[in-house]
Design a protein around this nucleic acid. Sequence first.
DNA 1: TTTAAATACAAAAAAATAATCTGTCAAAGA
DNA 2: TCTTTGACAGATTATTTTTTTGTATTTAAA
Lengths: 165, 165
Amino acid sequence: MNTKQKRKLDKIDLNILRTLQENGRISYVDLADIVGLSTTPCMERVKRLEKDGLIQGYYARIDPQAMGYGMLVFVEISLSYQSPDAFLKFNKAVASLPYVLECHLVSGDADFLIKARIADMSEYRALLGEMLLTLPGVKNSKSYIVMEEVKETLSLPINPSSPRG
Amino acid sequence: MNTKQKRKLDKIDLNILRTLQENGRISYVDLADIVGLSTTPCMERVKRLEKDGLIQGYYARIDPQAMGYGMLVFVEISLSYQSPDAFLKFNKAVASLPYVLECHLVSGDADFLIKARIADMSEYRALLGEMLLTLPGVKNSKSYIVMEEVKETLSLPINPSSPRG
DNA sequence: TTTAAATACAAAAAAATAATCTGTCAAAGA
DNA sequence: TCTTTGACAGATTATTTTTTTGTATTTAAA
């Protein structure tokens, strides 16, 4: 197993996670202050949380608009054959597409749900026509073009009762 | 305007953004080394990129599974009335729901597309029945339950030709 | 063309933080 | 009780961040 937690997460650990989740570049000094520890044990906890895989990485969020990705779109994809091999091939192909930020295998009407950022309509057409629809085994697609991003966050609700699993 | 770029982004800026996007906690010393500057101008650039809104924040990614959010679901929501007021009310209500990580106003069959993480089926039922479907003006919904997360990243493709806008 | 102002940079110095080390305390088990 | 283990604070050292200083280059005005 990858996520082996030898020790249970206590309130302080959850506080650390909650804080880093919102402020990934906070100093250990400030973090220690927030969670009520001195820096040494605070840092030890962070390192352990990283090692145990609870903290999966630190990322800066870059303004998509400013990078020329003014358009956000979700695309449903259905495959002709739902064989394991077809799924595997599709997975591999789609994961390497740079515009594709997310791809999920879903139950329901479609087979895959893809989230992609592109510059504009012409790039969207290119993405769909030249990249997605030409992937192995694709039958059809349906797109949801985002008109307004109401909410977008990575932050999970972390409170004293988490984790609940 | 919020994203006022007084200066155009050069190759070094893009390199900084690309690096921070993947490693949000890198030190300025190391970052400067990567982009080929000394620490002072490197840090000045980062500060400016933050001030100008190109860097929107730094975030640690926490393992959802370990936090008790083993289930990922996308929910399409249609409203009965597509009035601006109805949208506004729905926006406000859904943005405050903790399980909802994303909510987008979309064109296409549905009105909103929501991404939510919950613990399990019973929490999903509660989310749908007690939170989403009781929001003002909701007509109906359709869910895509994620069986496998093929790809999930925040990283935009940033190369020397970006931004292209 | 020359001068002045602005910008970007490197290098050095100061301040702050990260990382390591040491010792104490408390809990768990022999 | 004694020992071991784990978590912690405080001190120390190493490293990084931040500020300061000075230089080179560019831009705009004289």
